[in-house]
Design a binder for these strands. Sequence first.
DNA 1: GTCGGGCTGTATCGCCCGATACGAGACGCT
DNA 2: AGCGTCTCGTATCGGGCGATACAGCCCGAC
Lengths: 220, 220
Amino acid sequence: MTKEKLGTWRIDRQLVEDISRHAAYGRRRKFKKNTVLYEQGEVSTRFYFVLKGLVQISIFRADGSEVVLELMGPQTVCGEGSAFDGLPRFSSAAAIEDTEAIEFDTTKMTEIFRAHPEFAALLLRVTSLKQRVLAVRLKHLASREPQDRIMELLTRLEDMFAIDHPRGRLLVTYLTHEQIATMTGTSRVTVTRTLQRLREQNRIDIVDGHILLKRRADGG
Amino acid sequence: MTKEKLGTWRIDRQLVEDISRHAAYGRRRKFKKNTVLYEQGEVSTRFYFVLKGLVQISIFRADGSEVVLELMGPQTVCGEGSAFDGLPRFSSAAAIEDTEAIEFDTTKMTEIFRAHPEFAALLLRVTSLKQRVLAVRLKHLASREPQDRIMELLTRLEDMFAIDHPRGRLLVTYLTHEQIATMTGTSRVTVTRTLQRLREQNRIDIVDGHILLKRRADGG
DNA sequence: GTCGGGCTGTATCGCCCGATACGAGACGCT
DNA sequence: AGCGTCTCGTATCGGGCGATACAGCCCGAC
């Protein structure tokens, strides 16, 4: 249970059901651990609805360094951005666990939309949600303070993956400091230092290796 | 001509024509300078296709500081993110010039999509393009180096708004150092210093107040 | 057990950014 | 001309982050 690998993204149950209902427009595919779904730079009209496993979405910078955008777990959509705007992939997707996904192709989408306009609305909701998360991340990354950057990630994970705990909310997702560093654009050492500082500020705690976001602003 | 206020966003001509063709689904509205199109936090199903003027999209952080996402000039779309996912606006939009726009409402969209599936595909292209730009910005904001952050903005503006010049590409858009600072999450002083450094590195030049991106890797 | 690898916690050092302040120049207004 | 406003350039100072290095720990492999 502890340290089970989970994603950093989730969509609401209704949306998942709605997408699943349209699964027939795509085809089921399997990706072995450490294989690539798509690669930054290539042009493709395909996108994916992850059913099982874990897919790491990352952007490689000109100097070769990697920025991890998300870890997409089951019931998430990825690759739809570049599939719909027709431009080269701006990110790479690699299965870091054995993965199953439904692969959709946008080339026939206009026809599908005519018969099933609700599927179009659905996809618009998904791309809009992604736009939102990216914008919110950007808001925090605009700050140069590591604490802002890291807390943004933690609160986002709280929204998606936390369970209740007597002293607050416990993050089910397990991430190493190294992973947090690549997702927040800081160094590993700074992540350690910052988490330490947050503990001193009584805002978080570590329980069995997992991060606990303490309830705030209550006399305790 | 110099210092005319322009936006920081543009979409290709074909996309503009396609959207204009569907203008009948919305209604024309005017916004006076310094009025608000929508505000962060509110729930709304409306989005806008700007025809004339200039709209500043910004996110306000918890401490009150402002991160400017974009300046949307004519022939750009804004507000579609929150209009389609149904969640509170993650950004605010304010007309900083007298502005005319077509206001669309998403509530009747499923019906429209049935008759005009190409309109759905169009909107998906637009949201996907926004997702792309946000992701690319994120890639650079992940770096803590002001030079990366600022160069990202400049090259993006180059793609959208530069004209040819004997020594490189001249940015038509005029931005004060202060504006660049709020868009890149740095301080005004650092923008000045960084641009100075870029001039010393012979990567940019200032021509008549406008930034010139010098041609690179050519013996000069 | 023993070894090795991955992760976390610290320490030191250098550097660069942010905060702050002030002056110069451009421009508009009266 | 005189004034105010906006912008850019530059200086000082303090702090904190990145780079680097190393120690302790856990855990799995053998």
